Amino acid sequence: MMMINLREYVKIAISISFILIAMQPSIYAQNEQISWGRAQNQDNGWYALEEAQRIADNVLLYQHENGGWYKNIDMADELTSAEKEELRKQKFTKLGTTIDNGATHTQLRYLAKVYNATGEERYKKSFLKGLDYILEAQYANGGWPQFYPIKQGYYEHITYNDGAMIGVMDLLHNIAIAKPTYSFVDAQRQQKSKQAIDKGLEIILATQVKVNDKLTIWCAQHDKDDLSPAKARAYELPSLSGKESAGIVEYLLKLENPSGEVKQSIRSAVQWFQDHKVMGKKVVWIEDSTYTDNRDRIVVQDSDGGPLWGRFNDITTGKPIFVGRDGIIKQYLAEIEHERRVGYNYIDNYAEKLLKEDYPEWERKY
């Protein structure tokens, strides 16, 4: 038997105390109230905790009877009894359920994590209802509208804007390949998910814009009938979208055994990004007391700046365009109103990671 003296014992005791003290913040951090955004990115064990289930129960309350959710809601907020009762009354309101701004597919990802951690059937039931909603919302041609039931106007377009359709397809892809997080989904729904992403891929390939018979990238939204680039809000004109197209290509890179058509689509889009990157400039925030928020966003010359791409780009020339609420195309960010400059990201490094990391890795594989 090993013997230790009193001094060594004290040293060991102090060391253990320091370790326990150091551990305490992370233990408490796991149980603290957090935002809906932070709740999406926690360790697997966190989703079994009381706080994770409290948020999941909120998600169930916000879900409408048709299976979908509204957008722009922090589902981690503490709800009063009166608020919960009002949400129960609103469940049968269908108009407004959407895939815009991460709605519905984000809730489903969260519920899957909590179900896997807890085994609580109510989370599985809610997930499957939401999955059925997404599958039902798909157009026969493979696209998804922004709202379902259909909301008239630009909301009817096939919507890539803000990652709407790609967010849905990424979820369905993970279900179709039986990724462990979604292994609880039954075989019939897995098959429907596979069929949905196959149709979705068809419409992605069909909507890739051609200029002079050469494939380029995509618009943020396309007409549901003739598939042409389509206008949405006044400052969202038919154009080539840097942000949304980068997201589409990232999705295509994940596909196993890509067809020749998919490979051509990827390489054509990457070539467009290579040909139309803006170098020697960068976007910066500055203090400006002229405005109530005391700030402005500007583009400045910088020899080390770039690559940048426009959120909107002229279909013919591929050059970034800047459009305010008046719907008039400008050449420079400084020419549109302050409210839009600071409220919408018109130019950024949208495809930088795609070109530097993800696409080269894909090429080495294929």
Rank of each mutant, 00 (worst) to 15 (best):
N174K: 15
G343A: 09
Q221P: 10
N294G: 10
Y160G: 07
G247N: 13
L61R: 10
T216M: 12
Y160P: 04
D348H: 02
Y251C: 02
G324I: 14
P149C: 12
V284N: 00
A206F: 05
T159L: 11
N44C: 01
K194T: 10
H338C: 13
I99C: 02
D296W: 06
Q274D: 08
I158F: 04
A269G: 01
S245I: 01
Q24L: 15
K243L: 15
Q138L: 10
E51D: 05
Y139E: 11
L205T: 02
I12F: 00
I55T: 03
N58P: 10
D100V: 06
I175F: 09
N41D: 15
L227D: 02
D186A: 13
W285F: 15
K277P: 06
E335V: 06
L215P: 01
I99D: 02
L95K: 15
D198T: 15
K179M: 07
N41L: 11
N313P: 02
C219Y: 03
I217C: 07
T207S: 15
R364C: 05
Q33S: 13
D132V: 06
E352H: 14
V278S: 08
L252T: 11
Y359V: 14
S35V: 02
D358A: 09
Q274L: 06
G37R: 04
Y62W: 07
A206K: 11
G68E: 00
T80C: 08
R88Q: 09
I298W: 09
V283G: 07
R122Y: 05
I286S: 07
W285T: 15
E121T: 10
Q146A: 12
E352F: 13
R297H: 02
N72Y: 01
A56G: 07
K84R: 12
I19R: 09
V300G: 01
W218Y: 00
S183L: 10
V211P: 09
L333I: 04
K125N: 12
L60Q: 04
G242T: 04
A22Y: 05
S17N: 13
S303H: 09
G167Y: 02
Y160L: 13
R189S: 13
E121M: 08
I27Y: 09
E8G: 01
L355T: 00
E50D: 09
R109T: 11
